[in-house]
């Protein structure tokens, strides 16, 4: 395969046991993601993209194969691989501030450091005024900002995002997509992002990795050659060059999906 990446996945297999029968989810997956890349994973439903993300995060162990991040093998969850969940999975008994500072605190940083880094990230996501509020008092978009802030407060090397904007309304999605891009651009971290919305995939990605139907592997890689600072062009979303990629992606996914029957049962990594 191609040159060594920052994130390397080698011959990955994931087989679940469901009611005594083996249920293969991922088979022979190989992928290399470069340092600082914004990689987006798309594909038919339950084709293993969320599973792959969870494997990179270390929440699950593969049946066979290996995953390396920055040369080190993945052996369990770690603050260096931050994960943003699809339905946020925040701690509702804590205030916004407590949620955001949980990571730094747990890692044993000094009180001063905890305060500083929490303030920095809450400011960046625009939640300073809402620090003492409880989560149920915030809108979905604001809650997900907390989701990002708490992960970024740990200064991760890799940011893993499982369709984080999927529950939000369209305009919030557009706003937050821009914010995600800006944070990525500023920090230069590697991002692996799963989404169902092809418009969003094209808008965010440098490279789109398209999955084949379950059991999954990467079927195709689509490079998106749009300007780097995409948030600066307010009309980019309505431009033909952007939608040209959207149409291309649409065709690829539809073609991939038609290769096998749509899986009827839901996959094991669905929430």
């Amino acid at each position: 395969m191609s040159a060594d990446g920052f994130i390397q996945v080698k011959d990955l297999d994931l087989v679940y046991m469901k009611e005594g029968k083996p249920f293969p989810v991922i088979k022979g997956l190989n992928v290399n993601i470069a340092k600082g890349e914004f990689a987006v994973l798309v594909g038919p439903s339950d084709s293993g993209k969320t599973c792959l993300l969870r494997l990179i995060a270390g929440f699950e162990d593969p049946t066979s194969g290996e995953i390396f991040v920055d040369g080190k093998s993945v052996k369990g969850p770690d603050p260096s691989r931050g994960y943003v969940f699809q339905d946020m999975v925040l701690f509702p008994w804590m205030t916004v501030h407590q949620n955001a500072s949980f990571g730094p605190k747990s890692r044993g940083l000094s009180e001063k450091e905890v305060k500083e880094v929490t303030k920095k990230w809450l400011d960046k996501v625009g939640l300073t005024k809402f620090q003492e509020k409880y989560l149920h008092e915030l809108s979905g978009g604001m809650q997900q900002r907390v989701g990002f802030a708490r992960v970024m407060a740990n200064d991760p090397e890799v940011l893993l995002c499982d369709d984080p904007l999927g529950q939000l309304d369209w305009v919030s999605r557009e706003t937050l997509s821009n914010e995600v891009l800006q944070v990525w651009h500023e920090t230069g971290r590697t991002v692996v992002y799963v989404t169902q919305a092809i418009e969003e995939a094209v808008y965010l990605a440098q490279k789109i990795y398209i999955f084949a139907p379950r059991p999954g592997k990467i079927a195709q890689i689509l490079e998106v050659k749009l300007p780097e600072k995409r948030w600066e062009d307010k009309d980019l979303r309505f431009k033909k060059e952007y939608y040209h990629y959207v149409e291309q992606l649409r065709e690829i996914i539809t073609e991939q999906a038609s290769k096998s029957k749509e899986p009827v049962e839901k996959g094991p990594c669905s929430p």
């Binding site: 969850p77 969940f85 949980f102 929430p271």
Partner: peptide, 29 residues
């Protein structure tokens, strides 16, 4: 307890003791 809540805590760097005190206990209140 939703396994993802525990995953989130681990991902953020919490050890078992912290998880039991600050995550599990409040979550089962």
């Amino acid at each position: 307890v939703d396994r993802r809540v525990i995953e989130a805590a681990k991902m953020l760097g919490a050890k078992t003791g912290t998880i039991l005190r600050r995550v599990i206990l409040p979550s089962v209140l």
